[in-house]
Nucleic acid binder design. Structure first.
Lengths: 347, 347
DNA sequence: TTGTACGCGTTATCAT
DNA sequence: ATGATAACGCGTACAA
């Protein structure tokens, strides 16, 4: 007994396959009675149309793919949720795909376009360094969301993007620490080879120091251990602990992400110091956990919701032809909480 | 210009389509030279086989589907990662699918089976209450991983499952708090209508209290606000804050999950009390954040890695026919950290 | 309003 | 080792 298909349904109902097809796809010109009967038979026999056959035949499909690159960031999880809602609102369906570190997201996209007759693509995260030639092959509109450095060589009319200005936000946070009187500010950065958002945030730190004529000390820039998962609390803990164990000093720490900051704070406590009493700590991202941590975390909040919404809005506008590609940058919001404090004169 | 297909490649190479197909799929009987030439042409023309057509024709596909139900738990994210690795090790590919709260995971599975010619399915989370009749339609082997209550009526030979014994682990944690001298132990539970793991963990709490002849006080069982996301720190904060604001007292709190515990601890601090000085707090799950939180969190750690590995192991054994369905329960490990303490005599 | 027949891009069977 | 051709299950143009 093979799986039941549209032909079988047609036979049972004593109608042609096209009528069944029309009933399934809500075509207007089909007798309500026959339609009702067909749907009834379908239910009774638990008939499920084969999507592969459908996709093969169709030229469009109302499907949007979301490709997530790299770490399973809490951050992305939140974004996916709102994006999925937006997509559903437009009566499209979403297919989610995790792209491995060593996989090429555009290759994956190319494949999906064929298989699913995609109408649009959203790339979440990643660095996105691809040959323009390859990108050209992607005939489907796509938008890069919170992706790292996008080489400036690409024609900006061929895709959209939305993100925060990582460098500027990072500069702002560093400036805030400086305004509190701090001069010895450590930075917990990503691994040295990183060229993505990690690099941009380092640049912002550097700029703030330069603006204030503070010498940049290499020993204050802590790179994560490449053997520990990036952006994890573990990596923040390790970097900070090693720093303190070596007897180095600082009065403030700017961690490249909130999760890293949590690790750093714990390391400071484990060294017998307090936050912000002895050392101020600031993070980046604005994830919810920062609000509940003790001490609650000073951070730059990325407007996840706005970014997610903008991402899908732009994509749908392009799909509908109501606008061309564009690039939006959202401001982060600075949130001052308990983990940072003015440099006390005693230090 | 339509998309290039296998026929075009065949034409360019001056060979038949079957030869091209054989070259693509690494069939043994194809001349190495022609194969090389074909692959070269494919590369040059960026030909990508259409997966829909493939799935339509094939009867098997070496694909495993992972269906995740409900909240985008950090917990699941970690699991998916290891499961994906295991699947890749077996040279299978994974398709990930988020199932909405109001969607029927089995319906989704049924559809996917047809479309992708699935070889196996992994259900992550959810409550899994389905008619046996419907489950029977799922001809593909599946395993339920960390899913909540599975009605005992199902024939246990028709599927596999792996999880921890939520009730027993919950009982253990409550017993631990009792052993520390606590009697007024609050429980932060899920919303009242929950019948899943939330319910099981409440049962464990009740059992421990009964075992020790401690009267169960309804006012000490705090249900989450159904309007706030389940298992979130917000919901833990709200429940605890309301409790304290109403002037109620307890000396220990058992939160249904680590994230909920974080919210509760913060609420306790915001009320001017300390953890564990005034109130001890314990969580459940053993997520990494608990290690870095201040105070670090006493919890029951679910062996995520073991569970994930067991889940895929079982599935592949069934696929390979080397074993039948089975049901594994893993013990959680109790982790004592800073957030709990012996009841001081002053209280 | 309904039915017939063709084609979507692939793989597998059967010749050669 | 290779090529022609029949499915796979569906949607749709066209005919009725």
């Amino acid at each position: 007994m093979s799986e039941i298909n549209i032909k079988d349904i047609a036979k049972i109902c004593g109608v042609g396959v096209s009528t069944v097809s029309r009933a399934i796809n809500n075509h207007p010109d089909v007798n309500p009675e026959t339609k009702e009967k067909i749907l009834k038979v379908i239910r009774e026999n638990h008939y499920v149309p084969n999507n592969s056959a459908r996709n093969l035949k169709r030229s469009d499909s109302n499907t949007i793919a979301v490709l997530v690159k790299g770490v399973s960031n809490t951050f992305f999880t939140e974004m996916i949720e709102t994006i999925q809602n937006e997509i559903k609102k437009h009566n499209y369906s979403m297919v989610l795909h995790r792209v491995e570190f060593d996989e090429d997201e555009v290759d994956v996209a190319l494949e999906l376009v064929k298989e699913k007759r995609l109408r649009g693509i959203i790339f979440l995260g990643g660095y996105f360094v691809h040959s323009e030639e390859k990108l050209k092959r992607l005939k489907v509109p796509f938008v890069l969301s919170t992706a790292g450095s996008i080489s400036k060589v690409y024609n900006r009319d061929d895709y959209s993007s939305v993100s925060v200005d990582d460098m500027e936000e990072s500069r702002k946070m560093t400036q805030y620490l400086i305004d509190l009187g701090h001069r010895k500010i450590a930075l917990i950065a990503t691994r040295e080879s990183d060229v993505s958002v990690g690099k941009l945030r380092i640049d912002g730190y550097r700029k703030a120091l330069n603006d204030n004529n503070i010498k940049i000390e290499k020993s204050l820039i802590l790179h994560m251990d490449p053997n520990i998962e990036e952006f994890s609390s573990e990596s923040g803990y390790k970097a900070m602990k090693d720093f303190l164990d070596e007897g180095k000093k600082c009065t403030a720490v700017f961690a490249i992400s909130d999760t890293v900051a949590f690790g750093a704070i714990r390391a400071i406590y484990d060294s017998g110091l307090t936050v912000p009493g002895d050392i101020s700590v600031a993070g980046f991202d604005g994830i919810k956990a920062g609000e509940f941590y003790i001490p609650s975390l000073t951070t730059i909040k990325q407007p996840i919701d706005e970014i997610s919404r903008a991402t899908s809005d732009i994509l749908f506008e392009i799909i509908n032809g109501s606008s061309g590609h564009r690039h939006e940058i959202y401001p982060g919001s600075f949130i001052e909480r308990e983990s940072t404090d003015r440099l006390s004169s005693s230090k």
